[in-house]
Design a binder for these strands. Structure first.
Length: 430
RNA sequence: GGCGCUAUCGUCUAGGGGUCAGGACGGAUGGUUCUCAGCCAUCAGACCGGGGUUCGAAUCCCCGUAGCGCUACCA
């Protein structure tokens, strides 16, 4: 078993980090970290028109956010054009390539089979008849993708190339270049692409496709990376919730599936919920507060200790951080979202409103504003009036939170505070 | 069109000649509760089709079919 593993992730800074690319990065990172190897970055910015610094900044930020660290400084292809040209000239001198106008093309001789043993798919063979002469250097002087890819992989000493299935047909072309230079071949592994739920290529119309979007929606990096890693790889034993570090200990490229997987947003949500449950209370509250700010709500409307408690009330009920602001907006503003149907059902009738004002009047005299005292008062009142507690609870829940669902009413009341509770109940009872 | 990859519940998958074809997400039903979520208890749900090989095929082989990818002086 060869001991050194050097892999790379080579993003092109022409857009945001796509989930599929993130997954590729994840598996390369896993391959390196599982074998004490190196995980390098290479910026494929040969397209100077489409490449932008802001895209690169965001891609690197997203990688860090996901928990992927890389070794050494990234290399930029845009700074290596001279090298690519020199290497192309070498092939011209060797007679393996020729000039055509300003461009340099590689001659592909027919009548040969180019084969390689793919780490994931096994042996893949292609006839050179099906490969036409390859552009090395374009007429505008920039290098063609397959060529600079090979030059850099060789220069960086890459031992394992783990990339998407869409590169399978590039591999034989690249192998030809390695042969022309007399270089050793790296191992190749082609992993299937992630598909949208309908089986087509994952795209915007399936929902979020960039890591940034998931971050904004309140997904936890550990959950997103965990889910992505499960698409195409099953840990021995079948455990599904496992951290990156843990995964690195048992990951083997050979265990990866060669089957394309559909992206299941529901399972991602479930998994995120699992990670939300595991967060320490302080960290959870901080994340919730940050999410509220990002979504235009002011977490300071609640004192810090109540903020923590409010977050805890909803922890089991939310799958993403953003859902807290949607379910618990009434803690942070008075023009909170109201469910029209529930409002009509519980507060649209004289009985509902009178139950509410009865409850509110009684509450006004309560000294001990804690949830258990409020609950005792509510139940005593219901018994006294010969009604079900629910007849008091539902109108009050709507008045106070605007929602038919959510945390326990009495806990909500305690956290929201007497003043706001009584005010909202009285307003709704009008 | 040519070349290539793939094919187990709706989804992610385990299994790899003899299994009740296992798990997870989602779904359904019942219970608990002020609602929701959760929790508890159940349930439904799959080996793409056809030929071989074999005593026996989800598993091995071939052919179909379907999906996806590539077929650029994009990366």
């Amino acid at each position: 078993m060869d001991d050194k593993v050097i892999v790379r992730f080579a993003p092109s800074p022409t857009g945001f980090l796509h989930l599929g690319s993130a997954r590729t990065a994840l598996f390369n990172w896993l391959a390196a970290r599982s074998r004490g190897g190196r995980f390098l970055l290479r910026i494929e910015d040969t397209d100077k028109v489409r490449s932008e610094q802001r895209f690169l900044d965001e891609i690197l930020e997203d990688l860090r956010w996901l928990g992927l660290d890389w070794d050494g400084d990234p290399i930029h292809q845009s700074a290596r054009f001279d090298l690519y040209r020199a290497k192309a000239e070498e092939l011209v001198a060797l007679g393996a390539a020729y000039r055509e106008g300003e461009a340099i093309l590689f001659r592909v001789a027919p009548g040969r089979t180019v084969a390689f043993d793919d780490l994931i798919h096994g042996r893949i063979a292609v006839e050179t008849e099906t490969i036409k002469d390859q552009v090395l250097i374009k007429s505008d002087g920039s290098p063609a993708y397959n060529f600079c890819c090979v030059i850099d992989d060789a220069a960086q000493g890459i031992t394992h190339i783990l990339r998407g299935d869409d590169h399978i047909s590039n591999t034989p072309k690249q192998i030809l270049f390695y042969e022309a230079f007399g270089w050793n071949l790296p191992r190749f592994g082609h992993m299937p692409l992630i598909l949208g739920p309908d089986g087509s290529k994952l795209s915007k119309r399936h929902g979020g496709v960039s890591v940034t979007e998931y971050k904004a929606e309140g997904f936890l990096p550990a959950a997103l990376s965990n889910y992505l890693v499960l698409l195409g790889w099953t840990p021995p034993g079948g455990r599904e919730i496992l951290g990156l570090r843990e995964a690195a200990e048992i990951f083997r490229i050979e265990d990866m599936s060669g089957v394309q997987a559909k992206f299941d947003a529901q399972k991602l949500k479930w998994m995120n919920g699992e990670y939300v449950l595991k967060l320490p209370a302080g960290e959870f509250a901080d994340l919730i507060a940050a999410q509220l700010r990002a979504d235009g709500l002011d977490p300071n409307r609640l004192p810090p200790d109540r903020m923590v408690q409010a977050a805890e009330q909803y922890r089991i009920r939310i799958k993403t951080l953003r859902e807290f602001g949607q379910m618990a907006d009434f803690f942070f503003k008075d023009d909170f979202a109201r469910e029209a149907e529930g409002w009509a059902k519980h507060l649209g009738t004289p009985e509902g409103r009178s139950a509410l004002s009865l409850f509110a009047d009684r509450l006004a005299g309560l000294d001990d504003w804690r949830h258990d005292a409020i609950e005792a008062l509510c139940r005593d009142l219901a018994q006294e009036k010969g009604m079900k507690p629910a007849a008091l609870i539902h109108p009050a829940r709507l008045a106070v939170s605007g929602k038919t669902r959510g945390a326990g009413l009495f806990e909500i009341m305690e956290l929201l505070g007497r003043e706001a509770v009584l005010r909202r109940m009285k307003e709704a009872a009008q």
